[in-house]
Simulated scan of single mutants.
Amino acid sequence: MSSKDPVGATREALAALTAAAARVRHEYGDTLGVRRLTTDVDRIAADLDELGEPKPGHVPGVDRGSLLEVPDDPYDESMWQDAESEGQHAH
């Protein structure tokens, strides 16, 4: 049973990660690496719990304000000067 919303899908993945981390702890014991892994998993769970609601007015997808408009005007021909010899070596 898979969740379609991103938070639900993340919670499902986190549940699998939590179970995998528990198996690692069982296999390796209480080592520093295992404690750090467990702390990281716990931190992810806490961060997920603190998400709250999306920003008001947030529309998932491309932020149109961050896009750069490229005009259809022709480029300055001088920009292509010497372009034919680019990468070629004289013999």
Rank of each mutant, 00 (worst) to 15 (best):
M1A: 10
M1N: 08
M1D: 05
M1W: 03
S2M: 08
S2F: 03
S2P: 03
K4D: 09
K4Y: 05
K4T: 09
D5G: 04
D5P: 02
D5R: 10
D5H: 09
D5A: 06
P6W: 02
G8Q: 07
A9D: 06
T10E: 03
R11F: 04
R11V: 07
E12S: 05
E12A: 13
A13L: 12
L14Y: 00
A15M: 02
A16R: 10
T18W: 00
A19D: 15
A19P: 03
A20Y: 01
A20L: 10
A21P: 11
A22S: 15
A22I: 03
V24Q: 08
V24Y: 00
V24I: 14
H26F: 06
E27Y: 02
Y28G: 00
G29I: 05
G29L: 04
T31W: 02
L32A: 15
G33D: 12
R35Y: 04
L37P: 04
L37Q: 07
T38R: 09
T38S: 08
T38N: 07
T39A: 15
T39W: 00
D40I: 02
I44S: 01
I44E: 03
I44W: 01
I44V: 14
A45P: 02
A45C: 04
A45K: 02
A46I: 01
L48Q: 05
L48T: 12
L48K: 02
D49A: 15
D49G: 14
E50Q: 14
E50T: 08
L51A: 11
L51E: 14
L51I: 14
L51K: 06
G52L: 03
G52D: 12
E53A: 09
E53P: 01
P54E: 14
K55D: 14
P56C: 03
P56S: 10
P56F: 03
H58W: 10
V59G: 07
V59Y: 01
V59E: 15
V62D: 06
V62S: 08
D63C: 09
D63M: 11
R64V: 13
G65L: 06
G65M: 09
S66L: 13
S66Q: 14
S66I: 09
L67I: 10
P71W: 05
D72C: 06
D76R: 11
D76I: 11
D76Q: 11
E77P: 13
S78H: 08
W80S: 09
W80A: 15
W80Q: 06
Q81F: 12
Q81C: 10
Q81I: 04
D82A: 04
A83H: 04
E84N: 09
E84D: 15
E84F: 13
E86N: 10
G87H: 07
Q88D: 07
Q88Y: 08
Q88L: 13
H89Y: 06
